[in-house]
Nucleic acid binder design. Sequence first.
DNA 1: GTAACGATGTATCGGATCGATACATCGAAG
DNA 2: CTTCGATGTATCGATCCGATACATCGTTAC
Lengths: 200, 200
Amino acid sequence: MLELAILGLLQESPMHGYELRKELATKLGTIRAAISYGTLYPTLKRLHTAGWISENVPDGDTVPPLTSRRGRVVYKITAEGKERFADLLAQAGPETYDDAGFGVHFAFFARTDRATRLRILEGRRRRIEERREGLREILARATDRLDAYTLELQRHGLDACEREVRWLEELISNERSGRSPAAPAGDSPPAYPSPHQDRP
Amino acid sequence: MLELAILGLLQESPMHGYELRKELATKLGTIRAAISYGTLYPTLKRLHTAGWISENVPDGDTVPPLTSRRGRVVYKITAEGKERFADLLAQAGPETYDDAGFGVHFAFFARTDRATRLRILEGRRRRIEERREGLREILARATDRLDAYTLELQRHGLDACEREVRWLEELISNERSGRSPAAPAGDSPPAYPSPHQDRP
DNA sequence: GTAACGATGTATCGGATCGATACATCGAAG
DNA sequence: CTTCGATGTATCGATCCGATACATCGTTAC
């Protein structure tokens, strides 16, 4: 999952690890608070071994002992890496529908074709609907077995599910009618400031 | 984190692994969809080694070869396990405020003292507020660097944060005034079907 | 001037957890 | 009478996190 995110960001521009981590946090926002270095560096090493990225260690050829710069490794995507990224972008399996997988894929929807976008959005919706039904089941069946706090937790979870389904439905509807992702679907006004829709 | 959940459930009644997994799914609901057996059994083993639970393998003493029942191991909490559970319940550190940790602790709030409940709720609120501020920062600062889909993702995340902060505030307010967790705080009517509040 | 500090930067280790897989029992449906 | 789905125990490889260590750089404070 992280693999997709890294390749996607390096496609935009080469970066070193620290920068990559910050950009990752910005791009993924709430999905993955911040990637641990214990995840990032091994993954970068793996991507390098696979030949999808290159590691550029700038050892100043003729000036090694003067300042002895600590190696600031710049990572750059390769041609094979771009192919790999395209492959990952196009696939939509079960792992694409869980919280982390969906978030990462969604973050790169601008570079995903519409058919795949729709498949992912619908798969995710299905997933959340199942979760929602599970919670409704619990709330209908086990009301007496569970204490007030546990029930409140389930209600809060159910609320979040219903909200996400509505959100997904709006996104799906927008995709089908060829609208911008954030454009309001018609009757319901947007709750957030409009994303400057200057192309009619 | 899983340790707390297992000890908590086994405190209610002894269970075998399969049952434990199902109860865990019911109790934690949206927090942790379903615990993998690859997590559950090693954790049970660990708890057993630590002396917090006992493993009861019912090998029918005098009837070994007749049906040769596959060992259905029944796990039971020990006195030390109960102490351990109480210790875990009472502590409120940074790991108590992330998504998984908070959810598990909240699920056992019925057995947590009020002071700890308040500390955890406030710590969690702080955590979500920080996440919210981070998202606002991104939405204010990086609007032009991010595409429409990424922005929409951030907005959805921000919305979820604001919602959770409101939820936490209501819970905190209820705790302070000694109300039931799910009771409405006063002016705002509940968004979900009232949890049959037949006591006035 | 220089010492301290916070941001930048690379890297590893142990531990928690997941998903896939394997295997075995049992009751019911066909 | 056999196949199938639910029940049940268990392990393996891979992913990811949190803590930790260490080094550089610029700014601020003394």
